[in-house]
């Protein structure tokens, strides 16, 4: 299977899965928009109505963090099970095992752009009009995509060997939710060194801050940091791909015996 066939297969599978999912629900594709809107409403109710958070634009602040985070956590958690879930197919044909995590990620990606549209609508609702500087979001989104790829490929590999990793991954994403500055601003960490460390070792914290810089502050994030991060992620993905290639049949044997 060459790369073109691989990409076409990933794309076709992801589209078909979305179509199947939509056909099972009465509101079908409408859920893609409804889901994030309901999220916003729930948060609005908790933080603005119940808790009456004083912070200006807190809801917007929250959504700029939560929506990118949800993309990450959903993709990684679903994608990590993708190899195990495709046992039937793995039993039957010798195919690159990366196909399954990639398909799962692609499926999430196709939904995500709708969710991002909802986010942008909200940003505009709060009076931040789109400008050319919004284009600086593209590298941020790309970097997050790379992060999702690396984490999911690793996750799916580990879960294929030891099912318990599924629990570890769930705990891990929970930990990330609290440590990435979704409900709070990482710039409020007093200790500058600590903040730097968090930014370096938790790429999600950096990325979420970058989303906010562009969308809310009309400011620029640390481009060099982003470039280094992306390069590191790409190197990581490349290495994991090699492991997958070398161990393709070992993974199959493990899943088959599973």
């Amino acid at each position: 299977m060459n790369s073109l066939q691989f990409i076409s297969l990933v794309d076709t599978q992801a589209r078909m899965a979305l179509k199947a999912e939509a056909s099972k629900l009465y509101l079908s594709y409408l859920w893609w928009v409804l889901e994030p809107i309901l999220f916003v409403l729930v948060f609005y109710f908790v933080f603005e109505v119940l808790l009456n958070f004083g912070r200006e634009n807190f809801l917007l602040f929250l959504m700029c963090g939560k929506i990118p985070f949800l993309w990450f956590s959903k993709s990684v958690n679903t994608g990590s099970n993708s190899i195990v879930q495709n046992k039937g197919l793995i039993n039957q044909i010798d195919i690159p095992k990366t196909l399954f995590p990639y398909t799962s990620i692609q499926e999430a990606l196709y939904k995500q752009w709708v969710v991002f549209l909802v986010l942008f609508a909200m940003v505009m609702f709060y009076g931040h009009w789109p400008s050319l500087s919004w284009l600086w979001l593209l590298p941020v989104i790309l970097a997050e995509y790379l992060l999702i790829l690396l984490c999911t490929l690793l996750g799916a590999y580990l879960v294929a060997f030891v099912g318990d990793f599924r629990m570890v991954i769930q705990m891990g994403t929970m930990f990330l939710m609290f440590s990435s500055g979704i409900f709070w601003d990482i710039n409020s960490i007093g200790d500058g060194q600590l903040r730097e460390l968090l930014m370096i070792y938790n790429p999600l914290a950096f990325l979420i801050d970058a989303y906010r810089q562009v969308l809310m502050e009309n400011a620029m994030y640390d481009l060099q940091h982003l470039a280094l991060l992306s390069a590191g992620l790409m190197a990581g993905i490349l290495m994991v791909q090699i492991v997958y290639r070398v161990q393709s049949r070992t993974i199959a044997a493990k899943v088959v015996a599973g």
Binding site: M1, Q5, S8, L9, T12, Q13, M16, A17, K19, A20, E21, K24, G88, L89, N91, Q92, I93, I95
Partner: peptide, 25 residues
């Protein structure tokens, strides 16, 4: 009996099977 995705139609499954065996879409 293995390898079919239950949520997809027979048609879609047939397309995927052929693609998995190296055919173009």
């Amino acid at each position: 009996g293995l390898g079919f995705r239950p949520d997809l139609s027979g048609r879609d499954n047939a397309i995927l099977s052929a693609m998995l065996q190296g055919k173009s879409k």
